[in-house]
């Protein structure tokens, strides 16, 4: 296909514009977080610029608590959803069994479900079971929503899994457990690592599910929401920027790990 230079320039311009609008809110938050005034107004003089709110946020014991709750939820969710996702990915992509097609359809269902309603449903369910909601119930709810995602991510890797490798190992006398430990898990490792990163990040940023299910504990997005709806407070944008920064940092770190592990598995592949 001939793509003329003007067409390419047009598409590039359009993509640039979309990205610009897409990152406009982040820009706004950064601008607001640096304003000294108690009531934000734009533009402000350069002497009104300050990092005070960042210092406040980092020193606030309240914020520490919320970060702690969020991190606890995220790590439990990640471990649970990747473990469950690993096995369900094998059922999804690798093994042939009778319920497979139905399973493949149903796996996605929780993703297509409005999160606020899912959160409420689980709130009632916990109430019915007479369970007091706390951070760990939120972790369960996050797992319900994130396990389908980890399943999909690991499945993509599992589709690429060469069945003959497992068969060869079996042929050489390996047991199921040995095959799993020595062949399947190492080969699916890149998929599991990226699934872990998705799980942590999605749990970290989730609000709709946490809102109803954290009980007395409160996750960071909940606190931000409460502050946003109850009027402007200058520490909110600062915490928001820190939150975005942490997310970007996690993305970079985890993608670096994924790259490293895929490269490792690729270079070690011929020696198998």
């Amino acid at each position: 296909m001939i793509v003329t230079r003007t067409q390419k320039a047009g598409f590039s311009l359009y993509a640039g514009l979309v990205l610009l609008v897409f990152y406009f809110p982040v820009f706004c938050i950064i601008v607001a977080s640096l304003s000294k005034k108690r009531f934000f107004s734009f533009p402000y003089a350069s002497e009104d610029m300050t990092f005070k709110w960042y210092a406040d946020a980092l020193n606030s014991p309240q914020v520490h608590d919320f970060v702690g709750v969020s991190l606890r939820i995220a790590s439990v969710t990640a471990v649970a959803s990747v473990t469950i996702g690993f096995f369900s990915a094998l059922a999804y992509a690798r093994y042939r069994w009778r319920g497979r097609q139905t399973f493949q359809r149903l796996v996605l269902l929780p993703l297509f479900f409005p999160q606020s309603v899912l959160g409420l449903a689980l709130l009632m369910w916990f109430n019915f079971l007479d369970v007091t909601t706390a951070w760990w119930t939120a972790a369960i709810v996050h797992t319900v929503w994130i396990a389908p995602i980890t399943t999909l991510i690991i499945s993509i890797q599992a589709y690429g899994l060469d069945e003959s490798l497992e068969e060869a190992a079996r042929d050489m006398g390996a047991t199921r457990w040995q095959i799993l430990r020595k062949i399947t898990i190492p080969l699916l490792l890149p998929g599991m690592i990226s699934a872990t990163c998705f799980a942590v990040l999605l749990s970290w940023g989730n609000f709709a599910l946490s809102l109803f299910t954290t009980g007395a504990d409160s996750a960071l997005p909940e606190w931000l929401y409460a502050r946003m709806t109850s009027g402007y407070q200058p520490m909110v944008p600062a915490v928001g920027v820190i939150n975005v920064g942490v997310a970007i940092l996690l993305v970079i770190v985890l993608f670096a790990i994924v790259r490293w592990s895929t490269r490792k598995s690729r270079t070690s592949a011929p020696s198998h």
């Binding site: 809110p25 820009f27 607001a32 939150n243």
Partner: peptide
């Protein structure tokens, strides 16, 4: 674009609030 998925939508919407509020950006 994907990075945005990991930031709570509240924070991103709050950016628009700062952008569009009276004497906002």
């Amino acid at each position: 674009i994907a990075t945005s998925l990991f930031v709570s939508e509240n924070i991103r919407l709050f950016g628009w609030v700062i952008g569009f509020m009276k004497r906002g950006v």
